[in-house]
Amino acid sequence: MTTASGPVEEIAIGNDGDVVRVRQLARTYATKAKLSLVDQTKLVTATSELARNTLVYGGGGVATVEMVTDGRRNGVRASFHDEGPGIPDTTLALADGWSSGKGLGLGLSGAKRLVDDFELDTEVGRGTRVTVVKWSR
């Protein structure tokens, strides 16, 4: 069971500067969780992709970052929520190379590969929530 082990920080995502702020916050939390440099980079890259998706495809939204524990190890959980159009076909959206826009199609699938836990909750017309966790080793 994963439980929060510290404060939750929230950043509204409405412009490119907010995406940078999410990256910085993820790096700060990854350092506090004592993630290796490689795992810090993976988490920061994943959160950057997800924050960008929240802005570009979701029309903006909110990111939350927090420390978590499962009793054996510490980690960082980052969640991204928007009230955009939602994702009509999650299987397709998670396929490498597919993009609903002009991107490379590596955002969701790439983020999923970079983290330890990945959860996608979406509904057409209601928005999308993506939650990821990176654990210390």
Rank of each mutant, 00 (worst) to 15 (best):
Y57T: 04
A63K: 03
S36M: 03
T47W: 12
G58S: 10
V44Y: 05
R52D: 11
V44G: 02
V56P: 02
T64L: 09
V56G: 01
A51N: 03
T45M: 06
K42T: 08
S48N: 13
L35E: 06
Q40W: 04
G60E: 01
L35Q: 10
V62D: 02
L43P: 10
G61W: 01
L50E: 01
T41R: 15
V56A: 10
D39T: 12
V62Y: 00
L37G: 14
L37N: 12
A63P: 08
T54C: 14
N53Y: 05
T47P: 01
K34M: 12
V38W: 06
N53V: 05
T54K: 00
G60R: 04
V56D: 06
Y57R: 06
G61M: 03
G61E: 00
K42S: 11
K42I: 08
A46Q: 02
N53H: 14
R52F: 13
Q40D: 03
T47K: 05
S36Q: 04
S36K: 04
Q40L: 09
L55Q: 01
L43R: 13
N53A: 10
K34G: 08
K34E: 14
T41M: 14
V38R: 12
Y57P: 00
L55M: 06
S48Y: 13
V56I: 14
Q40K: 12
L43S: 02
L35Y: 05
G58A: 05
G61A: 07
Q40M: 11
G60C: 00
N53M: 07
V56N: 10
V44A: 12
V44R: 08
G58M: 04
Q40F: 05
S36T: 11
V56L: 12
L37V: 14
L55N: 01
G58Q: 02
L55C: 09
L37D: 15
A63T: 02
V62K: 08
T64D: 04
S48Q: 15
S36P: 02
S48E: 11
V62F: 05
G60T: 01
S36I: 06
L55S: 08
